[in-house]
Amino acid sequence: MTKSELILRLSELNPHLYQRDIERIVSTIFDEITNALARGDRVELRGFGAFSVKQRSARVGRNPRTGASVDVSEKFIPFFKTGKELRERLNDQQAHEPETT
């Protein structure tokens, strides 16, 4: 499912809303998560999961081909931890619904 398919699906479920409002809602949600992470905040959505930012400190890396050392600066990586309920749901389904699209 892509973002645009998600928007179409939400429009079907909410026929009383304009599609352009649905688009704004979906964009707002992902923009808000992005902005929170860009402030270094966590985003915790119970049952779904939590987004956080992990810091990787600066290190001296090596070019694996030449062996030359390179300075790798400090960086921040977004991280997602699946929530308990979602983790369980991914595995319940296994028995009954092997592959449907």
């Binding site: 892509t2 998600l6 699906r9 592959e99």
Partner: peptide, 17 residues
């Protein structure tokens, strides 16, 4: 929005935003 993402994932479908 969250539950639609969850449903796609439980079907085994990737979700790309």
């Amino acid at each position: 929005v969250l539950s639609e993402i969850v449903e796609a994932l439980t079907r085994g479908e990737p979700v790309k935003v």
